[in-house]
């Protein structure tokens, strides 16, 4: 069964722009930016709207559901801190934005492109909770 990694892996250092995303994860929410002027979604968190390049960006909460756009099964870890196999994946959220994450809660052979998944959250430190995705039942 694929599991979240254990504390000890390298963790994000949030920036001024990205801190609300990580605050969301700590609260068990997937937060994303929406332009208050043109309505477009921007992800990853950015200092400007990906459609109009405006800077009037607000935050919304995703339902955390989507499907696997692509994935890979890693057997040679990036560093020894990671337990293999692990399954990095690009998830396309239903709101219409992609997110880099990893798949947990199923066997390696169950993972398929197009599979429906939902967000789960794993606390890695006081500051950082990571978002993973598991099969949606």
């Amino acid at each position: 069964m694929l599991q979240p990694q254990k504390p000890g892996i390298p963790l994000p250092a949030p920036s001024l722009v990205t801190q609300p995303f990580w605050d969301g994860c700590r609260a068990g929410e997937l937060r994303y930016q929406r332009c208050q002027d043109c309505g477009a979604i921007t992800m990853n968190p950015s200092p400007a709207c990906s459609s109009c390049f405006g800077t009037n960006l607000g935050w919304e909460v995703s339902a955390g559901k989507g499907e696997i756009y692509s994935y890979t099964v890693v057997w040679r870890p990036q560093t020894p801190a990671f337990e293999v196999p692990y399954v990095p994946a690009v998830v396309e959220l239903d709101e219409g934005f992609p997110l880099m994450s990893a798949i947990v809660g199923c066997e390696v052979d169950d993972v398929k492109v197009g599979m429906r998944v939902k967000a789960v959250f794993e606390e890695m430190s006081e500051e950082i909770t990571l978002i993973y995705f598991e099969p949606a039942t």
Partner: peptide, 23 residues
């Protein structure tokens, strides 16, 4: 910050592209 905690490295990045093409 959006890739390092998922154990990404060059081979995994390019694998995500290849897997999509195979699909």
């Amino acid at each position: 910050e959006f890739v390092l905690s998922y154990g990404m490295f060059t081979a995994a990045e390019f694998a995500l592209i290849a897997r999509r093409h195979m699909h």
